[in-house]
């Protein structure tokens, strides 16, 4: 078994008004990797590139150690894919979809599919178009989970879903992860879904990977320094990842909280950063805005 379920090297892709340049990303097998970033940063582009829904201009993508174009069918057979806007033919129902899709996958289990439909509360005979947005997403998830995929590749799978169902979904994913050969890569803007659950976090911004780190590093080593404006002067510049100035002081995201603590001394609050802090400070903070 490969150490990395997914390896992306030097991938380029450009659209009018958007460029993804030289993207490198490694997703380790047996873990959950969360892809976060603002809208339009390239999350969907990255996921679509892996599925060959769009063609890359340069670079290499290996899934399960296999090139995703040379071994296209083989690779996709082991991926459970959820796209942020599920688009099945509008006039078909869940039952027919299962019958049409099942034979494509060796690991497909009709029984598991029916169980998931029941569990998710999806009406079996209702046409796709007549389902609510949330139900459409649940149907896409049921299909992705029904064929025992080795990699679950999901683009905003929790969009439009209530908190309760998001919890259920995480439980399903956690159960899958009990098998160390299974991996999950999902993009989301609901960072709380990933907070405790993701092993690795990848932040993407303007078509570039900003970092890819174990979540525990972010939580335990990084910090949000909060204080008066002059606190910035006391921090190590290379350590500061993002700054936001508010009416009552500044917040600075630092990559070494304990160093910052000794540098700043008393009178300064250093909090454990939430993923939301990281996302906001690194993509919407002052320094980022200034440099653009």
């Amino acid at each position: 078994m490969e150490d990395n379920v997914l390896e992306i090297r030097g991938v380029h892709k450009s659209y009018p008004g958007f460029t993804m340049r030289d993207v490198d990303l490694v997703v380790p097998t047996g873990h959950v990797t969360g892809l976060i970033g603002p809208n339009g940063a390239g999350k969907t582009t990255l996921v679509k590139l892996v599925m060959n829904l769009i063609t890359r201009e340069a670079g290499e993508i290996d899934v399960f150690g296999l090139d995703n174009l040379l071994h296209e069918a083989e690779v996709k057979a082991r991926i459970g894919f959820v796209y942020d806007e599920p688009n099945f033919p509008h006039d078909v129902n869940a039952r027919d979809l299962g019958r049409a899709i099942g034979p494509f996958y060796r690991g497909w289990s009709g029984e598991r599919y029916r169980r998931l439909l029941g569990e998710f509360g999806i009406p079996v005979r209702k046409r796709f178009k007549a389902l609510s947005k949330g139900m459409q997403m649940k149907l896409a998830l049921a299909i992705a989970l029904a064929h025992d995929a080795d990699l679950l590749l999901m683009d905003e799978p929790t969009a439009g879903l209530d908190l309760e169902f998001r919890r259920d979904l995480l439980e399903h994913l956690a159960a899958i992860l009990e098998d160390e050969r299974k991996s999950v890569l999902f993009s989301t803007h609901v960072t709380s879904d990933l907070e405790r659950f993701a092993d690795f976090i990848t932040l993407i911004r303007d078509g570039e990977i900003v970092f890819s780190l174990p979540t525990s590093d972010l939580r335990d080593a990084w910090g949000v320094v909060k204080g008066a404006a002059d606190v910035l002067a006391r921090l190590d510049a290379p350590d500061v990842r993002g700054v936001r100035t508010g009416p009552h002081g500044v917040e600075a995201l630092v990559a070494n909280a304990s160093l910052a603590r000794t540098k700043c001394g008393p009178g300064v609050v250093i909090d454990r950063p939430s993923l939301d802090d990281v996302l906001v400070l690194m993509t919407r903070g002052d320094s980022y805005v200034e440099s653009h």
Binding site: N52, L53, E72, K76
Partner: peptide, 9 residues
């Protein structure tokens, strides 16, 4: 896009 996401080339 859905058809393309199936395990086919």
């Amino acid at each position: 896009a859905f058809t393309c996401s199936l395990p086919v080339t």
